[in-house]
């Protein structure tokens, strides 16, 4: 208890907890349709693109998000397009874009500032990096994600379950996919500097997978995924503070433990 009290006395930690909690929530909600549509790696690809964008922004002395947001959103649409066109296989397309951006980012960094702590922070996240601006941004993001997700929930379900049928019955599957890509891109950008661009996709994938093991109704999967993601983030942050380990990595490890637990529970229920 005293540990938590101590944590809350640091303003930077409080900010990180607010931003991280909100981003975890958004990522968990969006992760469910992404995982079910076999788009899990889009989150991963986007964060690598985000790393490249941050590196370029730093080299140009521009505000990081002013570069990262448009670039990552554009990449999201590109990836979606590539997956849909079928010319390059979806997973290969993502690998091409993400590795390319990572390489570009590394070159830009080494030519400008050189490898330093900031680079490491981009890659693995830093709990110290959250400003008041980030808190405001994450609040807006969360409101946007939850609102749009609730409004288009039934359409998202229909398109995720059966895109062909949804298209045939006049639902706008393309618009639905674009919405998911857009919101995922924004979530990744906002969460990236806290969680690390190499780790942020864990927030998208793990809670959704865990919840899918436990729940038998789509609505419940969304709710459990959000709750689980939030709890794992808080536990991960406390563990990171107590053990003095990086927050992003710590949160992802807690998410993995939760996933293992859910697999175990799912097994037990199948047998029982």
């Amino acid at each position: 208890m005293s540990l938590i009290k101590e944590m809350l006395s640091y303003t930077f930690l409080l900010r990180a907890i607010i931003v991280g909690g909100l981003v975890s929530l958004c990522a968990a909600v969006l992760g469910v349709p992404l995982v079910l549509k076999r788009y899990s790696m889009i989150g991963d690809g986007l964060s690598h693109v985000g790393f490249g964008a941050l590196a370029v922004a730093a080299a140009m002395n521009a505000a990081p998000l002013s570069v990262a947001i448009p670039v990552v959103v554009a990449a999201a649409f590109l990836l979606l397009r590539l997956s849909a066109s079928g010319k390059v296989k979806g997973d290969a397309a993502i690998a091409v874009v993400s590795t390319g951006s990572l390489a570009l980012g590394v070159i830009v960094i080494s030519l400008s500032t050189g490898m330093n702590t900031e680079t490491s922070n981009y890659l693995f996240g830093s709990i110290l990096s959250m400003s008041e601006e980030d808190v405001r941004l994450s609040l807006i993001l969360t409101a946007l994600v939850l609102l749009l997700f609730i409004i288009f929930y039934h359409h998202i379900f229909a398109v995720t379950f059966d895109e062909t049928f949804a298209r045939a019955t006049g639902k706008r599957a393309g618009a639905c996919n674009a919405l998911l890509a857009l919101l995922t891109a924004l979530t990744v950008v906002v969460g990236m500097r806290l969680m690390g661009s190499l780790l942020i996709s864990g927030l998208v994938i793990f809670p959704a997978l865990s919840a899918m093991r436990l729940c038998r109704e789509f609505r419940h999967v969304i709710i459990v995924s959000s709750a689980l993601s939030l709890v794992c983030f808080l536990l991960g942050t406390v563990a990171s503070f107590a053990l003095a380990i990086p927050t992003g990595a710590s949160v992802v490890c807690v998410d993995i433990l939760a996933l293992l637990g859910c697999f175990g529970l799912g097994r037990l229920r199948e047998r029982g």
């Binding site: 039934h154 359409h155 229909a158 379950f161 019955t169 729940c215 038998r216 109704e217 789509f218």
Partner: peptide, 14 residues
């Protein structure tokens, strides 16, 4: 992971 009701309803316009 979806219930029968959720799948059947998804045939409606919404």
């Amino acid at each position: 992971p979806a219930s029968v009701r959720e799948v059947v309803l998804s045939g409606c316009r919404a």
